[in-house]
Design a protein around this nucleic acid. Structure first.
Lengths: 191, 191
DNA sequence: AAATAATTAAACCGACCAGTCTAATATAAT
DNA sequence: ATTATATTAGACTGGTCGGTTTAATTATTT
């Protein structure tokens, strides 16, 4: 039986709760209560408190999503169909409330982009790495460097917006419409 | 000299501050201090407090954006170019910090979609009316009903995501890439 | 001018916030 | 076994939160 890793438990709980309710919507006490850890432990592992925990939680969320995107591309060779498939998956995940996907990075980015530089920077890194992963896959599939880059940004924006619309309307419809449009949009043209 | 309209001043200030910092990021005292209005007045006009003020602020933000979208379509006949142009305008507005555009509706929707039904519902209405306005314009320009509807959702999602990316990265690049892609994406096909 | 209603004013409340502090306890190193 | 270090424990602090209350003032009506 391995020793319980308090620090990891804190990051995972913070990642999940910040995704669901944002930075200002969750208190340190909320996080601690959920996993039954005293406040002393939190400030032992994260001397800079809530901000430091949030930055690590953002990195953790980023890594989860990166692995999940990578998985879609590995299972499906055609990058267009891979993107379409994982937007589909996302629509299903969001509907299943036990998944507690929330709005990964989006809520905390929207809240703090103008008032907390370490958090903004962590969110920027997440968005950039996600976008670059899409771009890399399209470049590897023979799309031009410029087009691959632009598609990476465009796909990410459409997904982020689609998540926001689907969460707000409590319906997967928006994401499904976006998934349907994907094959018409991501053509291998040269401009 | 008309009497100062305290209620309108409150809604306008709340609209601006919620756009910039979200629901949890702005206190009632912040709003009141900015326009020098005592708390008693706020609870006179909004007996249900912060939530009621937020719902009216969301409706106000929705109307501002509706008028702004309408303006783009009136000035530019071609709906594709109108969309492209107003994403361009948005990129410029976001860069100009005096404009205080923030993330209209997005932040507050992301924060409260799961915990405050009146606010979620107000945000849903805003998204639906924006999306329907786009759809109407495309339908009027001869696009099929289905395609016009899907494009309305898709455009809104791409714009919302694009705003989030541009704010987070402190760069208009994301929105400009999206604007560039628009004419290739919004073709008048039949599916 | 008197009476009534609308609005302003700010002190005040309990709850909760992030963060601090000191001590107790468990674990590892010698 | 003893020392040193890492970790847990939670009471406590000053400040801010949304919201309440009561009184004073202003505007409207008669």
């Amino acid at each position: 039986m391995s020793k319980p890793n308090t620090k990891v438990a804190l990051i995972e709980a913070a990642s999940r709760l910040f995704r669901l309710h944002g930075y200002e919507g969750i208190s340190l006490n909320d996080i601690l209560k959920e996993i039954n850890i005293p406040k002393g432990s939190l400030y032992h592992y994260f001397p800079n408190g809530k901000e430091e925990l949030a930055v690590e939680a953002i990195h953790h969320t980023k890594d989860i999503v990166l692995a999940w995107i990578e998985e879609s591309f590995e299972q499906i060779g055609d990058p267009v169909k891979a993107v379409q498939d994982h937007i589909h998956q996302l629509a299903v995940l969001l509907k299943d409330e036990t998944e507690q996907v929330g709005f990964p990075i989006g809520t905390i980015a929207a809240e703090k982009y103008s008032t907390n530089e370490p958090i903004r920077s962590a969110c920027q890194t997440a968005f950039e790495e996600w976008s670059e992963l899409y771009s890399t896959k399209f470049f590897e599939a023979g799309y031009s460097e410029k087009l691959a880059k632009d598609y990476g940004v465009f796909i990410l924006a459409a997904i982020e917006g689609g998540i926001l619309l689907s969460l707000t309307t409590k319906s997967e419809e928006s994401l499904l419409i976006i998934a349907d449009q994907i094959p018409f949009i991501l053509s291998k043209r040269e401009n």
